[in-house]
Amino acid sequence: MKFVKVLMAIAMTFMLAAPASAADIDLAKESTINKILKSGELRVGFDASYAPFEITDKNGRYIGFDIDLAKELAKAMGVKFVPVNTDFDGIIPSLLSNKFDVIISGMTLTQQRNLQIGFSDPYFLMGQGVMVSNKLQGKIARYKELNDPKYVVVSRLGTTGEEAVKKYLPKATYKSFEKEVDCGMEVISGRADAFVFDIPALENIASVQGKGKVFVLNDPFTFEPMAIGYKQGDPDFANFLNNFIFQFKNDGRYQRLYDKWFRSDAWKSQLKK
């Protein structure tokens, strides 16, 4: 009798497991991985106005740290890299409407964004800094000192820079712009006092357009991990992306790209003068 009960229990286990296995198989078939492999293309969404992560060179080609990262991801999948340049403020809706497969655009992983899309493990750690007009040299040494209505502080619309201004500098007079280059020119021209944004971008603007006109407070006052964005509900793709990033960050490729884009300015010769 006990033997019969054991057999019945085993049979019941298999009956319950079968639908779950079928569901798992169906989920795997719907994974973005299979769609990418079937099409032979990895479509990557980004906004090519964020040096040195994604920019356009003098020949109209897309270059940058993120572009090289995306090419490595496509290579790992054995497919063609297809760039899709998209305005940053509409990049999440574009992913959700299947305009591309992933977002690799210097996007900070925030809890608010994570409610809309999935994120891989971080591939880059970032923080907010401040680019300040030279007219405030000797007056402003910390970001907190800008928290005053007499100071005009700018940042890019829809970014964590904008969030940082509203959170940490609520008393400052705030203005937003759609592109970081416009924010930078506001400070360089003297129409604004400071620009809050990601430190590498600030240092690039300061060294190119703002040389001798601005200075950068490059001690980050926020913690912002950058990650690859993808549509939610895809555990197989999430697993693949996380394993790719782990390999990328530990086999020497990350360091080579970091040295290329952040410890050298040779890439600037590829830009329009």
Rank of each mutant, 00 (worst) to 15 (best):
A9I: 13
A17Q: 07
P19C: 01
P19E: 00
S21V: 14
A23M: 03
A23Q: 11
I25N: 10
A28Y: 15
N34A: 08
K35D: 14
S39G: 14
G40D: 03
V44L: 11
G45D: 09
S49M: 08
G60M: 12
A76W: 03
A76Q: 10
V84T: 14
V84E: 14
P93T: 09
L95T: 09
S97E: 15
N98F: 10
N98G: 01
V102M: 04
I104G: 06
G106H: 06
Q111S: 13
Q112E: 15
R113E: 07
I117E: 04
D121R: 05
P122S: 02
Q128K: 14
M131D: 09
S133N: 14
S133M: 01
L136K: 02
K139G: 12
I140M: 05
E145G: 06
D148W: 01
V154E: 05
S155C: 13
L157Y: 13
G158M: 09
T160G: 02
L169V: 04
T173G: 01
E178H: 05
C183S: 14
G184L: 02
S189G: 02
S189L: 13
D193Q: 03
F197D: 14
A201T: 15
A201S: 15
L202Q: 08
L202S: 08
E203T: 03
Q209N: 05
G212N: 05
L217N: 07
Y230W: 03
K231G: 00
Q232D: 11
Q232H: 01
D234W: 00
L241T: 06
L241C: 08
N250T: 12
Y258K: 06
W261A: 06
R263N: 15
D265N: 11
D265A: 08
D265H: 04
K268R: 15
S269I: 01
L271Q: 09
